[in-house]
């Protein structure tokens, strides 16, 4: 593990640990996250972990660029991967239905599966949360089985309903709030991801695992889910 450290702004460094997306990266990313938070303390403004990197935004009133670099190197010296069991496992109930998941047929057809089997396959894997971004509470998860991988829509939708569960390439995610988006939508959950995020307590954190569970329309409605079909959204 030899991290590379790049200048990325006047008051920010990029720590590069890996080159490619891999679930096994997360134990190292989480360990580096903790080590950097400890090392920078009050001089840290923001720390943004992603799939292979961590962006360190430090307070340049307290630290110069060279000192920040030295502190980063020191923090990462002798780094050991975090305990991969430390992340939480979340079970997310999803109503998979063409009315709220219009790309069910497209993804199934590409994979050579019927829709029922596709749903079972999407639910059969514990996905790793790689990074948060795009919107408050939005977690990029993966990796989806290779044969289910589906490229983004050529023309993104202007509006994707809150709770929509989608696939893009080998990643899967849930839209926390109504937003534009180009992912292939398979279904919808009633879990209030945005409400958690706006309190500063997002449900999904990097390093967590997510297991989707198929539920019926009645169960989805009982959870307070909105059954308005996706394409009919204003």
């Amino acid at each position: 593990m030899t991290p590379r450290i790049d200048t990325t702004a006047m008051d920010a460094l990029m720590v590069r640990l890996f080159d490619a997306i891999d679930e096994r990266n997360m134990a190292w990313i989480m360990a580096a996250d903790r080590a950097l938070r400890d090392a920078f303390g009050d001089a840290l403004i923001d720390l943004v972990p992603s799939y292979t990197t961590l962006l360190v935004h430090y307070d340049c009133q307290r630290l110069g660029h060279a000192a920040a670099r030295a502190r980063t190197l020191q923090a990462l010296d002798g780094l050991q991967p975090a305990d991969t069991q430390s992340g939480q496992l979340h079970e997310i109930p999803v109503w998979y239905d063409e009315s709220v998941g219009p790309e069910l047929p497209r993804v199934a057809q590409r994979a050579g599966l019927d829709v029922e089997t596709l749903i079972a396959r999407h639910c059969s894997h514990d996905y790793c949360v790689f990074a948060l971004g795009f919107a408050p509470g939005y977690g990029f998860m993966g990796l989806v089985d290779e044969d289910l991988a589906t490229p983004r829509l050529e023309t993104p939708r202007r509006k994707v309903a809150a709770g929509s569960v989608g696939i893009a390439d080998r990643q899967t995610a849930i839209y926390p709030l109504l937003s534009p988006g180009g992912w292939n939508i398979l279904g919808r959950t009633a879990v209030p991801l945005f409400e958690h995020a706006r309190r500063g307590e997002p449900l999904l954190l990097p390093g967590d695992k997510v297991r989707f569970k198929a539920i019926s329309r009645a169960e989805f409605e009982a959870d307070g889910g909105d059954t308005t079909p996706l394409e009919e959204r204003p």
Binding site: T8, D11, A12, D19, S50, Y51, T52, G133
Partner: peptide
């Protein structure tokens, strides 16, 4: 490229 954190002014 793999997505990574974006500083102000990037």
């Amino acid at each position: 490229m793999v997505s990574e954190g974006i500083p102000l002014g990037a």
